[in-house]
């Protein structure tokens, strides 16, 4: 079974993020880039499906500048078979990203597209859903368990207050939650093999899509600094302060 795993490159969660003075984005010097952790879970799941079925192909894709190959190589080192880099230096909104992925789906014809439920940088949580809609495929978001039998897929979803099990026919789109699996390390032999695997760069213009963003980030701001608390002497004083100073009651 062919599985497509689209992923996003994000700053390492351990990195301290600094916002540019003009609020247009984050300072990228000294930022270590990694595969979005939810997408990494998707790669791991795709590899496990392939290992369980003992057949198939795991294809990775990402969208970005032509020197953004490093994270694709990491995925190949984990065990994916080949990779596609859709090259652009423009920022894209989520709908455009879903359309780009849909184009790759049309060419690759995978039976399953599996990706993270959201990227840890902007937390949009939209691409998987949009992609399923564009393709007209079933979707299962927030997967914490995934089973495939023949042409049917069963997914346990993490929803508010519990778990929901859904079953649907393939092809389909699945987005991964945190507890689906724990991604493996790329082994050293895997890293060496990854250099010989196919990594194709495709200019985004060749997909024939309208890339004009419908959504624009106007400004980024750091959350306000938390101020130290204050001890009050009595309930009366607290109520008074809440009323007169905080104007909450």
């Amino acid at each position: 079974m062919k599985i497509l795993v689209p992923f996003k490159r994000v700053p390492d969660p351990a990195t301290t993020i600094r916002i540019l003075p003009d609020g247009s984005g984050i300072a990228t010097d000294n930022v270590k880039w990694v595969i979005n952790p939810f997408d990494e879970i998707a790669i791991e799941e795709a590899l496990r499906i392939k290992e369980r079925l003992k057949t198939g192909e795991v294809v990775l894709m990402t969208i970005g500048q032509s020197n953004w190959q490093e994270q694709l190589r990491t995925g190949l080192a984990m065990g994916a078979d080949r990779a596609k880099l859709i090259v652009t230096d423009k920022p894209l909104d989520t709908l455009t990203i879903a359309r780009v992925i849909a184009k790759v789906v049309a060419e690759e014809q995978p039976r399953l597209v599996i990706l993270g439920k959201q990227a840890i940088d902007d937390d949009s949580n939209q691409v998987g859903q949009m992609l399923a809609e564009i393709l007209g495929w079933p979707q299962a978001t927030f997967a914490s368990k995934l089973e495939i039998e023949g042409d049917r897929c069963t997914v346990v979803r993490e929803v508010d207050g519990g778990l929901e099990t859904v079953a649907f026919p393939l092809p389909a789109v699945v987005t991964t939650d945190l507890r689906l699996n724990e991604p493996r390390y790329a082994s050293l032999p895997g890293i060496m093999k990854a250099r010989k695997k196919e990594l194709k760069e495709i200019p985004i213009e060749s997909l024939g899509l309208d890339l004009t963003p419908k959504l624009r980030v106007k400004e980024l701001k750091a959350p306000p600094k938390r101020q130290a608390g204050r001890k009050v002497g009595s309930v009366q004083e607290l109520v008074k302060l809440l009323h007169e100073e905080a104007k909450l009651i």
Binding site: Y185, L188, A194
Partner: peptide, 16 residues
């Protein structure tokens, strides 16, 4: 051995 492979290897080690 290329420097890029070395970097990948060391990055994996660092993560571990």
């Amino acid at each position: 051995m290329s420097e890029a492979v070395d970097q990948d290897i060391l990055q994996t080690l660092r993560r571990f």
